[in-house]
């Protein structure tokens, strides 16, 4: 499903080189739920961005869903991304559209037949427990609800891989718990999940395989 081989990433900020990942190697199998943890600045976001080909490694090989991302041509990126759901710390909902429209937007963008859109959008909203809020606008949602709407949008196409970068970062403990429960449900359905979080307690509470980053290196791989 995911395989990294001696992956390094160095950002160039003017003349300054910032090493963000150093010789990272690991494999994640189909259906695994993996927690990526480490202090702020450890390289979690950088690693996730390599996984959905938002950026390329400076060195090493990244293989995701059978695609070699380093060799991948630009024109193939769009097709590759359709198999991946991504959520961030901020929900990135479109403010002038309802929750339903935000979820349906993805289907419309990708040319899903009209008659399937409503059913599939509501399936996704039900999966995150938000079908009752379908007609609400993002400004009317709590942060936890907004994050669940973002999750619904990420899974509406039933992607085999879901990447979550600090999805609980803005939430209090109760709301964070809801998100984690939803993620576990999604994982139970067979979706491979990589969840990045700097919240050590959350990582422990999840009791899943945990990769720990420190200064761009994997220092622990346990569980």
């Amino acid at each position: 499903m995911i395989e990294l081989h001696r992956v390094s990433k160095v950002y160039s900020v003017g003349p300054v080189k910032v090493p963000a990942l150093r010789e990272v190697s690991f494999r994640i199998g189909k259906g695994e739920f993996v927690v990526l943890t480490g202090a702020s600045g450890a390289g979690k976001t950088t690693l996730l961005r390599l996984l959905y080909r938002d950026d390329l490694p400076s060195e090493g090989d990244v293989e995701v869903l059978g695609y070699g991302l380093v060799q991948m041509r630009r024109s193939q990126v769009a097709a590759f991304r359709r198999s991946i759901g991504v959520v961030f710390q901020d929900a990135k909902l479109l403010p002038v559209r309802t929750v339903y429209e935000n979820v349906a937007f993805v289907l419309r963008v990708l040319g899903t037949p009209r008659r399937d859109i409503t059913a599939r959008a509501f399936d996704a909203l039900r999966a995150v427990g938000l079908s009752a809020r379908a007609q609400a606008y993002p400004a009317q949602l709590s942060q936890g609800e907004a994050q669940r709407a973002a999750l619904a949008r990420a899974i509406v196409r039933r992607p085999p891989l879901l990447l979550a970068d600090e999805p609980t970062g803005n939430l209090d403990e109760a709301m964070a718990g809801e998100i984690v429960d939803v993620l576990k449900d999604i994982g139970a359905g067979g979706t491979t999940i990589v969840l990045a979080t700097h919240q050590a307690r959350l990582a422990v509470a999840l009791r899943r395989r945990t990769l720990t980053l420190e200064g761009g290196r994997i220092v622990k791989d346990e569980g």
């Binding site: 959905y52 990126v77 769009a78 097709a79 590759f80 991304r81 359709r82 198999s83 991946i84 991504v86 990135k92 479109l94 937007f105 993805v106 963008v109 990708l110 949008r153 196409r157």
Partner: peptide, 8 residues
């Protein structure tokens, strides 16, 4: 941004 992210 969303369109790029979801592979439009």
């Amino acid at each position: 941004e969303i369109m790029r992210l979801v592979g439009a």
